[in-house]
């Protein structure tokens, strides 16, 4: 029991991840990752929340997961979304969250109004950087921060720290 997070992925290749990757290749040819993935990340806040409640919310509200084009899993069952049976890459995860977020606020209001046992919802974007082996975890982590945090016109891409928070959570177990 506790906060429960899910990740949502497109069934098709994610166009935002492809665009970000091609931009990285162009502006950071030396340090760009070997792979980049993007997921919607939803965290449902309630210390008493059960998985059945979250599954019910996801199946009821197709604005969270549209089953026609998206798939989802609980965060600790992430391997259901990806096949990495022979994966020797170093993966670094980055969560990008708007500091003020109408989407999270409105979903919190909607779910509370409908008695969904949820105290709050946090919506983020989860980016997963993959580097081929040969790079240390710490080096990969530093490189990811450089690539992510946009501080100058020629520095960083995925998050504007003026309006967004950047977190590097513990890597997901796959």
């Amino acid at each position: 029991m506790g906060n429960i997070s899910i990740v949502v992925s497109l069934k098709a290749p994610d166009p935002a991840a492809m665009t970000a990757m091609s931009t990285f290749r162009r502006i950071y040819p030396e340090t760009c990752p070997d792979s980049l993935e993007r997921y919607d990340y939803w965290c449902f806040l309630n210390p008493c929340l059960g998985r059945e409640t979250v599954s019910g919310i996801v199946s009821r509200y197709h604005d969270i997961v549209n089953p026609n084009k998206q798939i989802w899993s609980f965060i600790d069952e992430f391997s259901k979304l990806v096949d990495r049976s022979d994966d020797r890459m170093v993966w670094i995860d980055v969560l990008v969250t708007d500091r003020i977020d109408s989407v999270s606020e409105n979903w919190t209001a909607i779910l509370r109004r409908n008695n969904c046992e949820v105290e709050g919802v946090l919506c983020s974007v989860l980016w997963r950087f993959g580097f081929t082996s040969g790079i240390s975890f710490d080096n990969a982590r530093n490189r990811v921060l450089d690539l992510t945090v946009s501080t100058y016109r020629d520095h960083g891409l995925l998050a504007n720290p003026i309006s967004q928070k950047i977190d590097l959570p513990a890597p997901l177990r796959i």
Binding site: I100, S102, V103, T151, R153, S163
Partner: peptide
């Protein structure tokens, strides 16, 4: 804004953002 051309206090530095609209009761 993403180019750091405005407000442009420090050359090329991104010093502002155009974030998602924040209106009570609606988003998007």
């Amino acid at each position: 804004v993403e180019s750091g051309m405005v407000p442009g206090w420090e050359r090329g530095r991104i010093e502002s953002a155009l974030a998602a609209n924040h209106i009570s009761g609606r988003s998007g």
